[in-house]
Design a protein around this nucleic acid. Structure first.
Length: 701
DNA sequence: TGTCATCCGTTATAGACAGCATGTC
DNA sequence: CTATAACGGATGACA
């Protein structure tokens, strides 16, 4: 099918042609045809074979027929990517909105949008507050629908789709998936046409490297001597031929050390004219400080590491340099596997076993396919090569058998877990979509779980969960009918796990207050992933326990969890004590990216705690606001009056404070020239800060 | 007695969604 | 195929 035949506005066809797309790939064409029938569609095709375009077609077709659509993705970074790509079609008058935790567009903005790109949790949150929202939606694209199989987040995706079908059976569902073992089951569940294909626009060769021979699945074999890093020569050959390499490892430390050693391999083969650009790029990273320096050291030689400990800025910088072809190698942890689109000619899976808390387990085949599937850069590479590194003959055989010559696992639902049912049963009752066992089961019977396992299998857990919710005041029960209590309603709207609220209650029932105790409490809840306290660290953490009166004692909680929460609270305290990211890394071995993530979670939970405290008439509720702002901005108490000024964060606020500008009013009285004389403030910044302060003070009256 | 090499036991291990109201250095 | 690499303390050789 040619782009010219595509049933979309001519402007859209022009945009596609301008990107070099003249003709659809066969599976794309098949999917487009299926979507045009108006039926639900499940598309299961390999990574990097143009799935997004299929989703975009669904969205565009909806728009041209006057319907609104939702594009559901699993990651915020993906949401931004899709948002940007869809925004290109703005010329046809289609309004695109982005709805994710951080960048929430106000609901009335969402109402005016034709397409909403959102994470599945966000869609869930919207339907909780306003179930009627769904009725105006014509098309729902569920990208990466295989994520249903994820134990922690899969149930949400499954419930979101089930709720949409329940509330709006007319909505067309388009499920996009990488290759999975049981696409038929998914299609059956959604009553959808199925498009399955293993077509790849750029041929992909898979192989296994044992340190001696690179054996490919088409029979070719090459002798590649191993170097100290095992894969050094593989990398060198590829880069010499003008390709780029993506290496996946299972530990951050490995990513950092391997990228350093690989750099020595590259050093000799990168031409002089590229080195200058690399030095510039390294200087850019260097300026970011901390980890940026580690990156810079490697960047000069054309290799970098990539993991979730990096700040978003560093991640994006590294990704862009790779995309521009400047960076030759990225050594990454699985962050990059499921994330944004970043192909390379050669993808090497350096270690396919990952520690799961018990032992080093082989990772599932679908993850391996997702990583290796990134091999082959459209427009640059004639082919892609995906290499699995095996330490010995045994593991080589394992790789061939389980990863190359075998099908990927079927996806399965984990909706019947107590955690998932607790959260989703409450949300259904809170949004008044269900009010008794019968109505709950009716909605749950539309889920993938019910389709594959049967709804009866969740009955017992559901009953337990309902008792839990009733016993603890989240719902009230009379004659088998459940009503949400104000507590249940707040819990659901705040998107909190009821168990988290059970932890909050310990504080509400206490007359005691301390910032540290609240941080510890928040870190104990199931909604926070705490930092891990090392064996050695625990000793030092006793200092905090001795100095602070916490809401829980060591005897009430599992020991590890207890100390992890103490460490998390200690890190957040250090952040609020205006320690720099470098200091925090030295003190606690916590990376900036991780810190930022926990800060955000803590802020959300403190907000939740603050907003529920009223229901319990907690005397100390008011103190949570200051704590939340301090966590958010990473400042001591005395800076709170300053960080309200636009353009002022923890650093500038401290500078202002040190020079006698202790609140917004004093800043407002200053002249921009005075402020500009302070260290680190340019005339431009000074002007905007003073203006911001004046506006702020003026608004207060 | 001080320094360095080696051995051996110990230790740590990937990722990332959500509320609300607006903007870091 | 039951991890494993890096780290840190202890020990011992040697000057």
């Amino acid at each position: 099918m040619l782009v010219d035949e595509l049933d979309v506005p001519e402007e859209v066809r022009e945009i596609l042609r301008s990107e070099g797309i003249e003709e659809l790939y066969p599976p794309q064409a098949e999917a487009v045809e299926a979507i045009s029938s108006g039926r639900n569609v499940v598309v299961s095709i390999p990574t990097a074979s143009g799935k997004s375009l299929v989703g975009y077609f669904g969205v565009l077709r909806a728009f041209s027929r006057g319907m609104r659509s939702i594009y559901i993705v699993p990651l915020r970074a993906l949401a931004m990517e899709k948002y940007e790509e869809l925004s290109r079609f703005g010329c046809i008058g289609m309004k695109v909105a982005l709805a994710i935790g951080d960048y929430d567009v106000p609901p009335d903005h969402l109402r005016g949008a034709d397409v909403i790109v959102a994470t599945c949790e966000k869609v869930d949150a919207i339907t909780r507050v306003d179930p009627g929202f769904i009725s105006g939606i014509g098309v729902v694209v569920a990208d990466e629908i295989h994520l249903i199989t994820s134990p922690d987040r899969g149930p949400t995706l499954e419930m979101v789709l089930s709720k949409i079908r329940w509330l709006n059976p007319e909505a067309q569902i388009i499920g996009l998936s990488a290759t999975i073992g049981n696409p038929e089951e998914v299609a059956e569940w959604l009553n959808a046409s199925l498009v399955v294909s293993d077509f790849r626009p750029i041929p992909l060769h898979l192989g296994v490297y044992d340190g001696i021979t690179l054996q490919l699945d088409d029979g070719r074999a090459m002798r590649v001597p191993r170097d100290r890093t095992v894969v050094g020569n593989l990398v060198r050959t590829t880069v010499e031929e003008g390709g780029q390499v993506l290496i996946f490892v299972s530990q951050r430390r490995h990513a950092e050390s391997l990228s350093l050693t690989i750099g020595r391999v590259l050093e000799r083969i990168i031409p002089e004219e590229e080195r200058e650009a690399l030095r510039e790029f390294a200087a850019e990273l260097e300026r970011m400080g901390g980890l940026g320096k580690d990156l810079a050291k490697r960047a000069e030689r054309g290799a970098c590491f990539h993991h979730a400990g990096l700040t978003n800025e560093m991640r994006k910088t590294v990704e862009n340099a790779f995309r521009r072809g400047l960076l030759k190698v990225i050594v990454a942890t699985p962050t990059l596997a499921a994330g944004i689109n970043l192909p390379a000619r050669v993808v090497i899976l350096k270690s396919f076993r990952r520690f799961d808390g018990w032992s080093n387990q082989p990772i599932p085949a679908w993850e391996v396919k997702q990583m290796l599937g990134r091999a082959g850069r459209p427009g640059y590479d004639p082919y892609g090569i995906g290499v699995i590194v095996a330490e010995n003959g045994h593991w080589a055989e394992f790789a061939w058998e389980n990863y190359i010559f075998s099908d990927v696992e079927p996806i399965e639902s984990h909706l019947s877990s107590p955690h998932a049912l607790r959260v989703h049963a409450l949300s259904l009752i809170a949004s008044r979509l269900a009010w008794d066992m019968k109505t709950l089961l009716r909605i749950f019977s539309g889920t993938f779980f019910a389709h594959t396992v049967g709804v009866d299998a969740m009955r017992d857990v559901l009953e337990e969960v309902l008792n839990f919710l009733a016993d603890n005041g989240f719902v009230s029960e009379r004659g088998g009918k459940y009503h949400p209590t104000p507590l249940g309603e707040r819990t659901s709207h705040l998107y909190l796990d009821p168990l988290t609220v059970m932890y909050f209650r310990r504080a509400y029932e206490s007359d005691h207050y301390s910032d540290f105790a609240v941080l510890h409490l928040v870190s104990l809840t199931p909604d926070m992933l705490p930092f891990r306290a090392g064996r050695r660290e625990i000793e030092t953490l006793y200092t905090y326990i001795a100095a602070e009166r916490l809401y829980y004692s060591t005897y009430e909680v599992e020991e590890d969890a207890y100390f992890n929460a103490v460490k998390t609270a200690a890190v957040l305290s250090a952040w609020m004590d205006e320690r720099s990211q470098d200091e925090i890394k030295d003190m606690f071995s916590v990376y900036p990216g991780d810190l930022h993530g926990r800060v955000q979670t803590a802020e959300w939970l403190i907000y939740g705690m603050e907003s529920i405290a009223g229901l319990f008439g907690w005397r100390h509720a008011g103190r949570l606001r200051d704590l939340r702002l301090r966590v958010r901005h990473g400042v001591r108490e005395d800076l709170l009056p300053l960080i309200a000024i636009p353009g002022v964060g923890r650093v500038r606020a401290r500078v202002l404070h040190n020079h006698g500008y202790t609140d917004a009013a004093r800043v407002a009285e200053a002249t921009p020239e005075e402020i500009a004389r302070l260290p680190g403030m340019g005339p431009k910044v000074a002007k905007s800060i003073v203006e911001g302060a004046r506006k702020l003070v003026g608004r207060r009256g």
